[in-house]
Nucleic acid binder design. Structure first.
Lengths: 195, 195
DNA sequence: GATGACGGAATGAACATTCATTCCACTAGC
DNA sequence: GCTAGTGGAATGAATGTTCATTCCGTCATC
């Protein structure tokens, strides 16, 4: 029996800590969450957290990085760069909706910590890179004359803001949106930004 | 010299505390802000805060209530209940834009604390009442056939979400939106929700 | 296969620090 | 001199972090 297999006999504590911390950070925020609380919910000792993470800040940065990259994977993998703008928009929207429905907490977490002071440089850069990717897509769609003119930042704020608004209202009432309503929302926002 | 005048000789400490706390709560959140920090920024002693507010929670609730009511005044006073929906929408949007431009921090503060666990019952009720007011306006516009059908909550999430998105992007880059861009945003969102 | 010594993961009580709140000496205005 | 109002040091509770100890799976030895 290899050491690896032996280790797997114990349920993964690192994962348990990450999950518990994600939940609590969403519920109470970073400063509102005590490390021993995280340990309790994860079912480990308080000290164990420091075997896996250097500090509370390192923990929150770990979660942020992992979720952001997962989101990036889902949203941007095989992006249909040559497809019509209408289809690009629908694809992006529905992928985001799928991710956010499957992981509402992860999505809200990213929103909450977007511009937190305790995000490390690597995460700030990651955020920046993703923003630029989206901006490029918007700008080139504008150049093609498919989207309204105006500051790209404004268009993105409107679409992303609306998306976040919808997700948050779902989280508040603890009920995922119907597929039909997702489609309606997509249609509404496409009509909003199309040229 | 009357006692009132004498007091006014000292710049209003209550107001200074409220202003400093609003700023810091926006910058660092409720739990991330230490009471002595608030005192420092307000230019008063830490103990003085407790002459004016029972606790840190009472302070944050005071700010929330004051800003929410100010916002309600601005947004809903003399609401043109009989005007065409198009005009109602424009009026509401521009009033919110005016408030949020003049008080970006107050607006972000309200967004941040919307569903905080430390909001007292009175503030939760206040929030509820305002939500119902907006919902009524939306539903009756839908009944008139001026807005898209669909869950009113969904439409409101989209519009308010987009609005918040725009404001937050302004706050991030510390630069208010041009009047022209506000008009563009208004037009975009009207086209989004109109029937 | 049984035994016991070993390594390192896990623990949670203890520590230093930070925080909200209290308290009291001091001041300014009468 | 008296009072109301103030600042900021003092206080005790709570927090993030550490560390001496426990616990457990592994493996060499018989």
């Amino acid at each position: 029996m290899s050491p690896n297999e032996a280790k797997r006999a114990v349920p993964d504590k690192r994962e348990a800590i990450l999950d518990a911390a994600l939940e609590l950070f969403v519920e109470r925020g970073f400063y509102g969450t005590a490390v021993p609380e995280i340990a309790d919910r994860a079912g480990v000792g308080a000290g164990t957290i420091y075997r896996y993470f250097d500090s509370k800040e390192a923990l929150v940065n770990s979660i942020y990085r992992a979720q952001k990259m997962r989101f990036g994977q889902v949203a941007l993998a095989d992006f249909p760069a040559t497809a019509p703008t209408r289809e690009q928009f629908r694809t992006m929207w529905m992928r985001m909706a799928k991710f956010a429905t499957a992981n509402p907490q992860a999505f809200v977490f990213m929103e909450l910590h977007h511009h937190a002071r305790y995000l490390d440089a690597e995460n700030v850069a990651l955020e920046q890179r993703m923003l630029e990717l989206f901006t490029n897509v918007v700008v080139s769609a504008q150049t093609r004359g498919d989207l309204k003119q105006g500051p790209p930042r404004l268009l993105m704020s409107i679409v992303m803001g609306a998306f976040v608004g919808v997700i948050r209202s779902c989280v508040e009432i603890a009920q995922p949106l119907e597929k039909a309503d997702w489609k309606l929302a997509e249609q509404i926002l496409w009509e909003a930004v199309r040229a």
